[in-house]
């Protein structure tokens, strides 16, 4: 558990750094922040976020707007990838 929490914090920090790099204010970045509904990322920003998640965590995440994700959900995918994805 402790390990996961530490991982979660590290991953959350990394995501925050990516988002701040895109010009998103720190105070809008929380675990329950939805990347499309709350942050309103445009296509270029979404692609950049996805590429960074791939580079840093080897996570293949499709960030379509029809299924919005919270930052916590993205962290979870990094920390505990689904069996299908890691297979």
């Amino acid at each position: 558990m402790t390990g996961n929490r530490t991982n979660n914090l590290t991953v959350m920090d990394a995501i925050e750094t990516i988002l701040v790099g895109l010009g998103i204010p720190e105070d809008t970045i929380r675990e329950d922040t939805l990347i499309h509904a709350h942050l309103g990322l445009d296509s270029v920003e979404t692609v950049k976020l996805s590429l960074e998640l791939k580079r840093q965590f080897d996570l293949d995440l499709k960030l379509g707007t029809r299924k919005d994700l919270t930052l916590a959900e993205i962290c979870q995918m990094v920390v505990a990838p689904s069996p299908a994805r890691s297979a």
């Binding site: 499309h36 990322l41 445009d42 296509s43 692609v47 499709k62 379509g64 707007t65 029809r66």
Partner: peptide, 8 residues
């Protein structure tokens, strides 16, 4: 609204 949606 973005490249992922278009690919889908």
């Amino acid at each position: 609204a973005n490249a992922f949606d278009i690919i889908t």
